[in-house]
């Protein structure tokens, strides 16, 4: 049997940012350009109707990947293919563009405070010219509001009249309005209280099942990722260090960083347990360590790890970028 073609395919994607100081200051201080490698060679594919999550600490590049995948940034290197078509070509075609949408972290910043909710939700519909007349627009907005658990009457209100969770429902309704197939969700529940987070995660899962949506889900919260994902990529300093089916990743993590992350999470079930902190900090992506970027914090690092950058290699269903795993030193 041949695998169905993935909806989204990312190959060797990289994005560098020039964070140099202005040229005069640079000349005075005799320093060179400073290049921040936010994403540096990331590859993955997302099957139709499934969820791939990228997880990692702040600065690991996961949000940059999200923005690259919907075309908000242009890649420095590598490519994104959407339904077989190169992304920048797909973005030029409105019929392709409406098939992908994004949900942002902060529902306070991402909704225009001066617009009524019905206009916020209908904006993509208007932009893509998907509706014949005002009556159809009204009906579609009412349908979308109902779909995300709000009432059609809420369309007349302004964003400030809603709580954080309700605002994120509005963001979801807006994202769904152009009937997209692919949603990129960048920390969609990080700004929400935990009881409300559960509502939104449940809603997203239900909508995925109902509409057959494909998700790229970005989060720093491993517990949330476990609930939402089919596959998970763990990112560290601009690269994926482990990529695996969600169950495999959580039951048998292979990369020392993945293991350390899971160890570090405070867990309710373990009242009184001492956590093992990961020593040190995430290094700067402007001057990443040579070899494996995790080696300064890794208990298994040796000479090879300090010199040679490990590539992502498959081990069964899991792919891991680690010399220790390759050499059988990881246990």
């Amino acid at each position: 049997m041949t695998e169905p073609a993935p909806l989204v395919e990312v190959r060797d994607l990289a994005r560098y940012f020039d964070v140099s100081r202005p040229i005069v200051q640079r000349l005075l201080a005799r320093e060179g350009r400073r290049i921040l490698r936010a994403v540096d060679g990331v590859s993955f594919a997302i099957a139709r109707g499934s969820t791939l999550s990228l997880v990692g600490e702040s600065g690991c590049g996961k949000s940059t990947v999200a923005r690259l995948v919907v075309g908000l940034y242009a890649p420095t290197r590598g490519e994104v293919r959407f339904d077989g078509q190169e992304l920048s070509a797909a973005r030029r075609d409105p019929r392709q563009r409406r098939r992908m949408q994004m949900i942002f972290q902060d529902p306070y910043a991402s909704l225009n405070p001066r617009w009524r909710v019905r206009d916020i939700i209908a904006e993509p519909l208007d932009a893509f010219g998907l509706l014949p007349d005002a009556a159809a627009r009204r009906d579609k907005v009412a349908e979308l509001l109902t779909q995300v658990g709000l009432s059609p009457a809420d369309g007349e209100k302004y964003p400030h009249e809603f709580s954080g969770g309700q605002r994120q429902r509005i963001s979801i309704a807006r994202a769904l309005s152009s009937n997209p197939e692919f949603l990129v969700c960048d920390e969609p529940t990080s700004a929400l209280d935990v009881s409300v987070q559960a509502q939104i995660l449940n809603l997203m899962k239900a909508l995925q099942a109902e509409l057959g949506l494909t998700f790229l889900f970005i989060s720093h919260n491993l517990a949330v990722v476990r609930q939402m994902s089919d596959r998970v990529g763990v990112m560290y300093l601009g690269r994926i260090v482990e990529l695996a089916p969600a169950e495999t990743l959580f039951t048998a993590p292979r990369h020392p960083y993945t293991r350390a992350l899971m160890e570090a999470i405070p867990d309710l079930a373990m009242t009184g347990r001492q956590r093992t902190p990961v020593g040190g900090e995430v290094p700067s992506p402007i001057s990443p360590p040579p070899g494996c970027a995790f080696h300064p914090r890794c208990p298994l690092a040796n000479g090879r790890c300090r010199a040679e950058r490990p590539e992502l290699r498959p081990y069964g269903e899991t792919a891991v970028a680690c010399h220790a795993v390759e050499e059988g030193r990881a246990g």
């Binding site: 935990v194 995660l201 476990r226 899971m262 867990d267 309710l268 079930a269």
Partner: peptide, 11 residues
């Protein structure tokens, strides 16, 4: 509040 916390050890 406790019940709505996503568990890490199972899906």
């Amino acid at each position: 509040l406790m019940a709505s916390i996503p568990p890490l050890d199972r899906r």
